[in-house]
Write a protein that binds this DNA or RNA. Structure first.
Lengths: 208, 208
DNA sequence: GTCATTCCATACGCACCCGTATGGAGTGCG
DNA sequence: CGCACTCCATACGGGTGCGTATGGAATGAC
């Protein structure tokens, strides 16, 4: 019965950790890009002041780095590890596209990160992530038996389509005329079918 | 022989017009998004001061609107009118993709505009432009004889691929493994071939 | 309870940008 | 020349965000 609740009606007012700040920064990153990862606005949003922040972090750059690190881990690992179970490369491709297309409009962080790719702290992270994805998709088409040049072309088409889909779905909701969930599913099926067109047998060299 | 050149060695120092400011704003928009369309930085870049700006414009919003209007006109009209000459829809599609893929990496304005699509002044402009493009590409595939649902799917794949291509080429140069110009041309050919796969005859109803 | 440690609130200086006010160059016209 | 008009330079106030300094509250060890 210690008197712990004095004026705590408006907010919890429990103490914050560095991770709380990083999570809030990641959320702000998704909403407004790196420009929104600002100390004082985040402080008021968290119901605290700058004094809390500068106890946990050295400066604003450290906060941006923490948010980016959080994003990179959460995102890359979650997506790729979810596919590791499926042995069939064609099924993995279909699963990948279904998954990312479904999450596209609920994923503003990826859009904001790419939009801030000119920032010195963002550039290496987004490049690392995109290079990993590019290499992964290329290897996927190679595993399907496409010759290297064709695999690269299919992968570029697929990856750029995903990036553009993500951008348009987030920034201009309702623009893509895919209707409801069914329309989106049909689109993914059609797109994957095109990307897999004339697929040779798996792991069969194409030009012997 | 009037003494007109007093201290004009470092800059021309001729008087500026509102259009000069709008052009500089468009350039800044391409480099750093709407955040870079700032009065004082642009003034120093133009070798003048804010006094000049606030003579030609009411405030910063008017400058942003001028830059966006410039971009919308220059861009949409230039691209679409260049295609009006070609009667064959397949050739128009190929020409469209060749053109936009070639210009993709030299077109940072489109990327910045889409990146700033949450801005109140940018949102209606970019939505208008993208809706026009979407409708145009859909009508192109319909003209090729695809049934409406398929035309929409092909158009979505093509447009999102272009948007993603533009983003990646501008923000992460060298990431797309397309090599030199020839590699890009081959990619465009392959992508267009996939998008045109199983095309019915032009203006032939598909499901009679 | 005392006390040291952890964590936060407040106040301050600095820098940047917006918008306004005002005086003064520059130019064309009589 | 003189004068009106166009255009720009400078100075100022307000607002916001970064980073620092410093005192004080909350918490755990004893």
């Amino acid at each position: 019965m210690t008197v712990r609740y004095r004026m705590e009606m408006e907010r919890e007012r429990r103490r914050l950790s560095a991770n709380d700040w990083a999570e809030a920064a990641l959320s702000a990153l998704g909403k407004g890009g790196v420009a929104a990862v600002a100390v004082e606005p985040l402080a008021t949003a968290l119901g605290t002041t700058k004094g809390s922040f500068y106890w946990h972090f050295a400066n604003r750059e450290a906060l941006i780095e923490a948010a980016l690190s959080l994003w990179e881990q959460r995102f890359t690992e979650a997506t790729i590890s979810a596919l590791a179970a499926e042995p069939e490369p064609a099924a993995r491709l279909r699963m990948l596209f279904t998954r990312v297309s479904r999450d596209a409009e609920h994923n503003p962080a990826a859009v904001s990160v790419l939009a801030s790719a000119d920032h010195a702290l963002v550039a290496p992270v987004v490049r690392r992530v995109m290079e990993r994805r590019m290499a992964y998709v290329v290897s996927l088409f190679e595993e399907l038996g496409f010759p290297p040049e064709v695999a690269v072309q299919r992968a570029v088409l697929g990856l750029t389509a995903y990036v553009g889909h993500n951008q348009l779905a987030v920034r201009l909701p309702g623009l893509l005329p895919l209707g409801t969930q069914d329309g989106l599913n049909d689109y993914v099926e059609a797109a994957v079918a095109l990307l897999l067109h004339d697929a040779p047998g798996p792991s069969a060299p194409a030009t012997p």
